[in-house]
Nucleic acid binder design. Structure first.
Length: 560
RNA sequence: GCGCCCAUAGCUCAACUGGAAAGAGCGUUGGACUACGAAUCCAAAGGCUGCAGGUUCGAAUCCUGCUGGGCGUACCA
């Protein structure tokens, strides 16, 4: 895109200066191109002169002058300015912008995406909540971040697989079974005491009732009964989780079961390897992983002295399994309370002889739920939590998804339920959707007036004549085109930084430019030629808005 | 005690990863519908970026030390 072309222009200027003997230094330089906040500072800007100054032992101002001298002939730019103590600011020619618009109009938005990934494979694992209870609002945040990040990475040319890891083999599942067992007894009129660490939510009662409704029988021994109930309960809960995610617009390519790792021998094999390499050894009857050899962290238990394996052991096996599937990058999305887990997992990857940088962990900070001005505590076991489903039912899928993406993931999020419900009309998501609906409305009116543009309506190009985009000259129109072009940079930036929230801010800004324009300029005006050019502008704009909302998993209704 | 994260306008959050004069929305105040949808627009007020040092051309961003909040620190999951 244009940013890249500016970068090339600068590189060429540097090389020319080198050839002429003005500059002399070793190696290539990748100039950083920014989009300045202030429009006075141009459309693109570089701080290159500051970077080169110590290398060349020249003042930034002097260096900037040399570069500008070489670059100023380019037909890309209207003018190049040196500002401040050495910033170089580029002002793009309107024609170049209009050409870019035309290009997207003709080839479509999908041809206008960065190919950052070049087909490299990424596995993104998220949610992965244990099937012991319904998803709560915190899981929802992780679900959206993972889902949208996957979409963004796909747009940026990566091959992405979304995976849910089901912990179906551990202590928690057994506790779930025991909880159901007690509820069953209760339903039969027995008086029961619930230990503190049991699951007490009402959903356990529902599972127990369902067990009876389905006419299932319990095995004779308590042990077998609990085993059966564990399986029954967790599969019921898992079904519910999948349904909740579906209604939230989140789908997975793959569900991976922890129990598979045991069945396939992956856990044993992995522990064997660690032992062989000398990174795991026995002490006090337990098997320990020597985390301390790799990270500033303590050694951790893999097999307890009672013979049970820890989750850590199966997690190592799981990550080894993921890497064995040939992914170039593994992204894990975790709740921030698991942050202490990162060093040991990275250490284990290193111990297995892999590059630990292949694992990127994104931490999702807590969501504080506020109702009636008070915060609501969340604990699955105490059965006191607001489920994702409740929130989605109340504020809607679109608003809920967008809300979760309004903050970067490592910051706390305050979710005020009352506010989200009460002011849902003022939610930014409507601001964006409204822009789309407004554009659509313009198209409907245009059609009534018999105006058809390629892609708008169904009649093909109007009068077979070329539409003159040169008629787009207003500042507002140029601002919209620039906004459209920034879509490319936004996707690229979000993908590089793994920060999906950038897209929401981009869309709000983009759509703001449109709303301003709309209030100032009548698109369907007296002069047909202007109308046509403006319709093309809005057509491309709408494609970008729709694409952006599609990535966010938010709907784009034609009417609201 | 040790470790990780956070602290920015009255509130909720941004700031393109070290750039120029820190930006939006909500809220407040004042304007704009006999023109394509007012779920919109235009304008104003609002800041010593928690505090104190340091690094350099340049710091909300990096380093050190405080203050206040969250989380972790298990042969838990």
């Amino acid at each position: 895109m244009i940013r890249k072309r500016i970068q090339e222009l600068i590189k060429e200027a540097i090389n020319n200066c080198k050839k002429k003997g003005i500059f002399s230094f070793e190696g290539e330089i990748d100039p950083i191109i920014e989009i300045p906040r202030e429009e006075d500072f141009g459309d693109y800007s570089t701080n290159l002169a500051f970077i080169l100054a110590p290398k060349l032992k020249k003042s930034p101002l002097k260096i900037a002058e040399f570069i500008v001298e070489e670059a100023k002939g380019s037909d890309l730019v209207e003018k190049i300015e040196i500002a401040g103590k050495g910033f170089i600011n580029f002002f793009i020619k309107d024609d170049v912008l209009r050409d870019a618009l035309k290009n997207i109009f003709q080839k479509g938005v999908d041809a206008f995406l960065p190919d950052l990934g070049m087909g490299r494979k990424i596995l993104i694992e998220f949610v992965s909540a244990n099937p012991t209870g319904p998803l709560h609002i915190g899981h929802g945040r992780g679900a959206v971040v993972g889902d949208v990040l996957a979409n963004i990475l796909k747009c940026a040319g990566f091959n992405v697989v979304k995976e849910y890891y089901i912990n179906d083999a551990g202590r928690q599942i057994a506790t779930l079974g025991e909880s159901t067992y007690l509820r069953l007894k209760e339903l039969r009129g027995e008086k029961v005491e619930f230990p503190d660490n049991f699951y007490k939510g009402d959903y356990i009662k529902d599972i127990a009732s369902k067990f009876i409704e389905q006419g299932k029988n319990l095995p004779e021994t308590k042990e077998d009964a609990i085993k059966k109930l564990s399986e029954f309960s967790s599969s019921i809960v898992m079904e519910g989780i999948i349904k909740d995610l579906q209604d939230f617009g989140v789908y997975f390519d793959n569900y991976f079961r922890e129990s598979e790792l045991y069945k396939s021998g992956m856990v044993d094999k992995t522990l064997e390897i660690l032992k062989e390499k000398g990174f795991a050894s026995e002490k006090d009857g337990a098997l320990w992983f020597k985390t301390s050899l790799f990270e500033k962290d303590e050694d951790r238990v893999l097999i307890k002295s009672n013979g049970e394996t820890t989750y850590f052991a199966s997690d190592i096996a799981y990550h080894r399994e993921k890497l064995s599937r040939g992914f170039d990058l593994l992204i894990d999305i975790w709740g921030s309370d698991h942050h202490g887990y990162i060093p040991r997992l990275k250490a284990s990857i290193e111990a297995l002889g892999e590059d630990k940088e292949k694992l990127k962990v994104i931490l999702i900070q807590f969501v504080t739920l506020i109702k009636d001005g008070k915060t609501i505590g969340m604990s699955t076991r105490a059965g006191q939590f607001t489920t994702l489903r409740e929130v989605v039912d109340e504020v809607g899928k679109d608003a809920a998804r967008f809300f979760f993406l309004m903050r970067k993931s490592d910051a706390h999020l305050e979710f005020d339920l009352d506010l989200a419900k009460k002011t849902s009309n003022e939610n930014p998501v409507y601001y964006i959707q409204y822009a789309n609906a407004r554009i659509e409305s313009i198209f409907r009116n245009a059609k009534e007036q018999g105006i058809f543009i390629k892609g708008i309506g169904d009649e093909g190009v109007t009068h077979g004549k070329e539409i003159n985009l040169g008629l787009l000259t207003l500042k507002e129109e140029m601002d919209i085109i620039k906004g459209i072009i920034h879509f490319y940079d936004t996707i690229e930036g979000s993908a590089k930084s793994l920060e999906p929230h950038r897209l929401t801010f981009y869309l709000i800004n983009l759509v703001g430019r449109f709303h301003s324009y709309y209030n100032k300029v009548k698109v369907l005006g007296e002069d047909r030629r202007f109308t046509e050019a403006r319709l093309v502008l809005l057509f491309v704009l709408q494609q970008i808005i729709k694409k952006g909302l599609d990535i966010l998993g938010v709907s784009a209704p034609d009417k609201m």
